[in-house]
Design a protein around this nucleic acid. Structure first.
Lengths: 83, 83
DNA sequence: CTTAATTTGTGCGTATGTATG
DNA sequence: CCATACATACGCACAAATTAA
């Protein structure tokens, strides 16, 4: 299998960066990178890894929280929801 | 019944370690590990048994003291409240 | 009486993570 | 991108009181 360089943000494409990141995170969760109730990388890490602004990372997370894919625990981290 | 390895702290989960310990202690009290007016293990022991920092153990105890589940006697120990 | 061990009380410093402007 | 605030966790060290040897 080849998951390909799906983990690169295209800043000039038609899809907004935060939606790209949201898609990447969903793919990585589906792939099993992080199990349910496990924390995904911190916002700071995601900023580094994907070369995005923190605002953008937070927007992507907010989107996935809305979709019940992630849930945030204040002062603790962002976790993968079950199911 | 299976009490399971509920006595293991997950440092990376969404639930704070001190809250996990508080839950474990409450479960052990309910289970009858220590009767009312009997001392629970010392802070130092709990630190060893659960691999936590003393600060964390004390926070868990403080929480249960607030809930009237435990009471502390300085230089004496921490005891199970009645009821 | 002295000493050592035990137990809670307290403070300081460091690190990580989210929340917010 | 930067700064500040807050909550949490860990490690270390010392104090005070009690008990045991």
């Amino acid at each position: 299998m080849d998951f390909g360089p799906d983990d690169v943000i295209d800043h000039d494409g038609p899809v907004t960066p935060y939606r790209q990141l949201a898609g990447i995170l969903k793919a990585r969760i589906a792939r099993g990178d992080w199990a349910p109730n496990r924390a995904i990388p911190s916002e700071a890490r995601l900023v580094q890894e994907y070369g995005l602004a923190r605002t953008t990372v937070r927007r992507a997370i907010a989107l996935l929280v809305e979709e019940r894919v992630l849930f945030v625990v204040p002062q603790r981290g962002t976790f993968v929801a079950e199911r």
